[in-house]
Simulated assay, not measured.
Amino acid sequence: MSWNKWTRGPLAALAVCVLLPFGAVACATGEAHGGTVAPSPVGKVLDNTDETGRNLREVPRKNAPEVAVEVTPDAAGGWDVRLALRHFRCSAPGTRPAAAIGRGLAHLYVDGRPVARLRTPAYHLAAGLVPQGTHQITARLYADDGTVWAVRGKPVESTADITVSDAEADTAEPPAATTSLGAGG
């Protein structure tokens, strides 16, 4: 099931969750995407959106959520993704879909394609999602209402570049990674 194809129905508040490997949980409510975002005392909802159509929620730089992503090859194949979070906590499954400062979930993207919604700072990325070549793994922080945490009009996110070479793709050895860390804002 592709999580970017959710539609709003009569039970818009219904949240569907899927357990992912290593305890990560993917949840979708559809509240902000394609709908209206309820006013909140947390930050300011901007008219600007990310490429998925979700509104940015501007917060001051001081104590704003931050994320850094690190991607390392896994000996069994695939990639281990670790998020370093600052001024941010992952919300538990079933959390009310409302913005609360420094809370929410992370969306994981490979080359701009959505891969997972994370409620923990660790995730195993299957080798098949990262074929031969250089790829960008991005983690972006979202509030529980589906808005994107933003500082100075830019989403709070971090990207790591990884490269899988020809020789690595043809052997049983895990591929090498080149990682760049950075917090958005």
Rank of each mutant, 00 (worst) to 15 (best):
W6C: 13
R8L: 15
P10F: 13
A12H: 08
V16A: 13
V16M: 15
C17D: 10
V18C: 09
F22N: 08
A26D: 08
G30E: 07
E31D: 05
H33Y: 05
G34P: 07
S40Q: 08
P41I: 07
V42R: 02
G43P: 03
K44N: 06
K44Q: 14
V45S: 08
N48G: 04
T49W: 06
E51G: 06
T52W: 12
T52E: 14
R54S: 09
N55Q: 14
N55R: 15
R57F: 04
R57N: 03
P60G: 02
N63P: 02
A64V: 02
E66D: 01
P73N: 12
D74M: 10
D74I: 01
A76E: 07
A76T: 08
G77R: 15
G78E: 13
W79F: 15
W79A: 13
D80F: 07
D80A: 12
V81H: 01
L83M: 12
L83N: 05
A84M: 04
A84P: 01
R89M: 07
R89W: 03
S91C: 13
A92K: 13
G94L: 14
I101R: 11
G102T: 03
G102K: 01
G104P: 01
L105K: 04
A106I: 04
A106C: 14
L108H: 03
Y109K: 00
D111V: 10
D111H: 11
V115I: 12
A116M: 10
R117W: 05
L118Y: 07
R119K: 05
T120A: 15
P121E: 08
A126N: 07
L129K: 10
G133S: 13
Q136E: 10
T138W: 00
T138V: 03
A139K: 00
A139G: 12
L141P: 02
V148G: 01
V148W: 04
R152P: 01
E157C: 02
V164S: 11
E168F: 04
T171A: 11
P174E: 06
T179R: 15
L181G: 00
